[in-house]
Simulated assay, not measured.
Amino acid sequence: MSVVEGGGGPGVTTPRGFEAAGVAAGLKSTGRADIAVVVNRGPLKVGAAVFTGNRAKANPILWSQQAIEDGVVEAIVLNSGGANCFTGAFGFQTTHHTAEKAAELLGVSSGDVLVCSTGLIGTGDEVFRAKVLDGTERAIAQLSDQGGPAAAEAIMTTDSVAKTSACHRDGWQIGAMAKGAGMLAPGLATMLVVITTDAVLTAQQADAHLRAATRVSFDRLDSDGCMSTNDQVTLMVSGASGVAPDADAFRSALIDVCTDLAVKLQADAEGASHSIDVQVIRADTEDDAVEVGRAVARNNLFKAAIFGNDPNWGRVLAAIGTTSARFDPYAVDVEMNGVRVCSDGGPDRPREEVDLSPAQTHVLIDLKVGEASAIIYTNDLTHDYVHENSAYAS
């Protein structure tokens, strides 16, 4: 597999059969692009999606959950600069009007158009609606098979860089774009992700592959323990390659693309100075490994220690001791950036040997009870994170 790095890759327009565009509709005070459209030109119009686990769902989520039920997706419209969440009946009507506008211009059914929004919760008025509809019309007028980068930039909020990825296999491809830089917690994260492929898949296959991929990638991205109202990951299938790939090969490639994007989201988390991979090995079950890793990833004392370049492994043991996973706390080993600082629940190598100055930090927790493992992706807790989120609505 080859992965397209950075924001310069074509992303969602890498596979055949897709066009995209991104335009500025005035939703952002910066004047940057804020409306993106991705269209599937077929011949297949298959779609699958997974959504936030938050019970408080934004209007676009409520709409898209209904629209995806038949497994058909012709297009997706995304806006940044406003979450359209907790905006009442007016907000849902805005989402409905957006799908209708796109459907009218594309000559498709509005029920086959998904909608995504991201931004501040609780805001939305006639001006917002007018800008979204105008931006949708202008984006559709600019659709191109080279429009992937512009679309990726249009969905950014507090992101510092656009995030795209692509996989090239024999005869078929996967492309993707994502946004997200905060509220990164499982189910999914505060992110919008659009994945495209020109492989031949049924709706049932697309749904199964997508859920398998998100389970081990986006669902294990846990930057700050906060779950968004607008998360959506969509897979669009054009079938334009004419190739029906081996199921295991496609799933493996999709997991690679989703993991690549999850790591890019982790690296761009709001205010973070360290990207921390918490790897748990020799757990009794995979669920235990995830639970232990997540307990560390959500522990503010541990995250603050990493920010201060302090290899305080005691905070790791204290965090995992709160879980219901099966292990003996007094038999656990802990490594930080390759240095085993804890062996059998006691001190090992001197803390001074651990170098936490690099931005990438690896914590290895050996539970010594089984063969299961998992990695949770998180970040440190910084002054900049607090400052940025204290002024988010200002």
Rank of each mutant, 00 (worst) to 15 (best):
353 E>A: 12
161 V>Y: 10
81 G>D: 01
6 G>D: 01
302 F>L: 06
374 A>E: 07
311 P>V: 00
68 I>K: 04
184 L>H: 07
198 D>K: 12
154 A>I: 11
75 A>T: 03
156 M>I: 04
238 S>Q: 11
35 I>W: 04
38 V>T: 01
228 S>R: 05
170 D>Q: 15
288 D>F: 08
241 S>K: 13
309 N>Y: 10
247 A>R: 15
332 V>F: 12
369 V>A: 00
382 T>I: 12
290 V>R: 12
364 L>A: 06
267 A>N: 09
163 K>S: 05
344 D>H: 13
350 P>S: 07
360 Q>Y: 02
160 S>F: 04
386 V>G: 13
379 N>A: 11
332 V>H: 12
322 T>I: 10
37 V>A: 11
109 S>E: 09
4 V>G: 13
138 R>F: 03
286 E>L: 11
186 P>C: 06
361 T>A: 04
202 T>Q: 14
103 A>Q: 00
138 R>A: 04
210 L>S: 11
282 R>P: 04
113 V>G: 04
153 E>A: 09
143 L>G: 01
4 V>W: 09
326 R>W: 00
221 L>R: 05
122 G>H: 00
227 M>C: 08
38 V>D: 03
16 R>N: 14
227 M>L: 13
30 T>D: 15
100 E>N: 04
136 T>H: 09
162 A>S: 14
125 D>A: 04
284 D>L: 14
70 D>S: 13
340 R>I: 08
327 F>Q: 08
37 V>N: 09
316 V>L: 03
36 A>W: 07
84 N>L: 05
86 F>C: 12
54 N>C: 12
165 S>E: 08
30 T>V: 12
323 T>V: 07
196 T>K: 01
353 E>I: 06
221 L>A: 05
367 L>Q: 10
314 G>C: 10
206 A>C: 09
231 D>F: 04
294 R>I: 00
170 D>A: 15
275 S>L: 05
122 G>W: 01
92 F>L: 15
14 T>Q: 08
234 T>M: 10
311 P>I: 00
141 A>S: 01
106 L>R: 01
335 E>S: 15
352 E>V: 11
270 E>D: 07
55 R>S: 12
105 L>I: 08
258 C>Y: 06
123 T>K: 13
100 E>F: 02
335 E>N: 09
384 D>K: 14
262 A>V: 12
93 Q>I: 07
91 G>Y: 09
258 C>A: 15
151 A>Y: 03
351 R>W: 12
289 A>K: 07
152 A>F: 03
133 L>H: 02
108 V>M: 03
195 I>Y: 06
384 D>Y: 09
111 G>K: 13
236 M>T: 00
327 F>R: 08
195 I>C: 07
73 V>R: 05
306 I>L: 04
375 I>R: 14
210 L>M: 08
14 T>F: 13
339 V>F: 09
6 G>P: 00
100 E>G: 03
133 L>W: 03
